[in-house]
């Protein structure tokens, strides 16, 4: 097991079971966290797993707190995951889906922040299509803000739940080889994961056609591959990304079938990775575009487990920011 959970058993643990108080008002990105804080959040989340499976055990540390899920972009799983996490901890959860015309987005965001702030929530969970929008909103409110995805920038709870899933299966992060495959250029999941995994001394690889690789990517991951067969060799974890349909219309990728042919994860390709490699996907999947259904539902897939870890991670983050784990 990891270092800090050993410590936590011997040190004076707080009511949330962590020796640390989480010293941030917001969770805007993995970039704001150091290795100790990442391990601490993963430890907290791990303690949430059995609790989350057995509602009677839950300490309702968010009792009486108000959580607003403010989603400017459609999301089913992330929004539900945050809602369930908040409710299991006893929070009053309000969901707001704000569909906006692209021209008025910014105005809506600032106005919305002022309006919501006046209702005195304790935490706002925000997803927005523009990079940096969540940070901007956090400057306008007095409560905690959690980034549930901002443009192609960050999606920190996704990276934390991915790391927790990997740690559960591999019992460590340090020294593993993780390959992230697909639309790296437009993916906030890839960015947050690369930052977290780099901080944890994971050997990170990205695999994608050059049109889907952002400039300077070689400086933020260990290895870059454009050939998937070569890139999968020896990896412990294969992390697939969703290929947005609008990218396959010809501008960046000529067609779905060509993409699947060269970058789809099928059984043959998966066999090139380590025999005990696990397969991950942040969802929702395009079966037959980036992943073969047989692999998605196969023995090495941990995709459904990621969803479960998502609730645990979000409970831990909510608790750390506004519950008992928060610095008073």
């Amino acid at each position: 097991m990891n270092e800090s959970s050993k410590h936590s058993s011997s040190s004076k643990a707080s009511r949330s079971g962590s020796p640390y108080s989480f010293n941030h008002q917001h969770l805007l990105g993995i970039a704001q966290l150091n290795q100790v804080e990442i391990v601490d959040l993963l430890d907290r989340a791990e303690k949430m797993i059995p609790v989350s499976r057995n509602p009677q055990q839950i300490k309702q540390t968010l009792n009486g707190k108000t959580q607003i899920n403010l989603f400017f972009e459609n999301s089913t799983r992330t929004q539900s995951s945050f809602e369930i996490a908040g409710k299991r901890l006893g929070a009053i959860v309000v969901n707001m889906s704000v569909k906006t015309s692209s021209a008025a987005k910014g105005e809506t965001l600032i106005d919305m922040a002022a309006t919501l702030n006046a209702m005195s929530p304790d935490v706002i969970v925000v997803r927005h299509s523009s990079a940096g929008a969540v940070e901007l909103l956090s400057q306008k409110v007095g409560c905690s803000v959690i980034n549930a995805g901002d443009g192609a920038h960050e999606h920190p709870t996704q990276a934390l739940l991915d790391a927790l899933t990997i740690r559960k299966h591999k019992k460590r992060l340090n020294g593993l080889i993780v390959a992230i495959c697909g639309d790296i250029a437009n993916s906030r999941v890839a960015r947050s994961n690369l930052m977290l995994l780099n901080a944890m001394n994971v050997r990170t690889r990205v695999i994608a056609p050059k049109t889907l690789l952002p400039k300077g990517i070689e400086h933020i991951c260990a290895e870059v591959f454009t050939n998937m067969d070569k890139g999968l060799k020896d990896v412990d974890v294969v992390m697939m990304l969703r290929l947005q349909r609008e990218r396959t219309s010809g501008a960046l990728v000529p067609s779905e079938r060509e993409y699947y042919h060269f970058y789809g994860l099928d059984k043959r390709r998966l066999a090139l990775a380590k025999s005990d490699a696990i397969v991950m996907h942040p969802g929702p999947m395009n079966r037959g575009v980036e992943i073969d259904p047989l692999v998605a539902d196969g023995a090495q897939s941990v995709i459904n487990e990621q969803v479960e870890m998502g609730v645990a991670v979000r409970m831990a983050v909510l608790d750390a920011l506004v519950g008992n784990g928060a610095k008073k």
Binding site: G132, D150, G151, A152, H153, R191, P214, G216, I217
Partner: peptide, 15 residues
């Protein structure tokens, strides 16, 4: 500017 900064911030680059 299209560079490492843009990639890190998740912003679209101008090459």
């Amino acid at each position: 500017h299209a560079g490492l900064m843009a990639t890190g911030l998740g912003l679209k680059g101008i090459p």
